[in-house]
Nucleic acid binder design. Structure first.
Ligand code: MN
Ligand code: MN
Ligand code: ZN
Ligand code: ZN
Lengths: 139, 139
DNA sequence: ATTCATAATAGGAACTATTCCTAATATAAA
DNA sequence: TTTATATTAGGAATAGTTCCTATTATGAAT
């Protein structure tokens, strides 16, 4: 039996993946929407969200959720750590070794089976450190 | 100059903290609301949220945000790790050493100053492992 | 005790990120 | 070309949280 020769990525789906890769700094769905719009002016928010969900399932992207309400997306899918600014919400990579969860037993994990780990540091980015009078709103 | 002898905790604030402690398993705002309601029948969601915010600022509680949309609260405020069920969203403690972030330099952190770290494993809790026919909806 | 200023509350509206729904359109197979 | 299905754009709905406001509780000063 063949693996079904199902439809390849649609133009929109590819635009979403491309936009995420070109933005590269852990963009939000909104960031991705506007970047993808540069390629496909008619693309909708709905389509971006749907394809982000698909791309996460296909392990082309990783979702990063932190203290802020928005989900950020990462096209670098290996296990690494992030830091998020408490003030402006921006997410960057952390240059520290990632936590290894391969040896964890269910007994360590309250009976859960473990399939991943997300290490997110919190702090203040350089832009937001410059006093609170210029309010840090940049991405 | 004295530290202002400001108002102690209100009845509602204490009820919120108490409810969180008695629930103990990383309850959500909604869980806390219903538990606090057992003590103060008139308490409102608004009051629960406001006091949760205050208690977090006062470091009486820690907020835990993960893949699911809801914030969970922990009255155990030392630095430890959690695991969240992908299916039902429940949060439990992880019996593994917490990540130490005290020695991290700004150079490791893309120029951020670091003030905390949140290590959240993901997986499937025991209740949600029993096939997908009994859909795992319990807390 | 009464007055006063202020802190906190209950209730509900507003907000926001995300998901869901639907009719229209694009695509690939037959 | 016809048909079946996948995907889309757009907008409505949802859900968790925050914000607003009139009312009530509290403690200090009189
Ligand atoms: Mn990354
Ligand atoms: Mn805990
Ligand atoms: Zn910042
Ligand atoms: Zn579960």
């Amino acid at each position: 039996m063949e693996t079904k020769p199902t439809r390849r990525g649609s133009k929109q789906k590819m635009a979403v993946l491309d936009a995420t890769k070109r933005l590269s700094n852990h963009p939000t769905a909104e960031d991705i929407f506007f970047k993808a719009k540069e390629e496909i002016v008619s693309i909708s928010f709905s389509t971006v969200y749907r394809n982000l969900g698909i791309l996460v399932k296909e392990k082309e992207l990783i979702p990063i959720s932190g203290p802020g309400s928005e989900i950020h997306y990462d096209h670098v899918i290996n296990n690494h750590c992030h830091i998020q600014c408490r003030v402006c919400g921006k997410v960057r990579d952390m240059n520290v070794p990632a936590v290894d969860f391969s040896g964890i037993l269910p007994s360590d994990a309250s009976g859960f089976t473990v399939d991943g780990v997300c290490v997110t540091f919190t702090g203040t980015c350089r832009d937001c450190q410059v006093e609170t009078d210029t309010k840090g709103e940049q991405k």
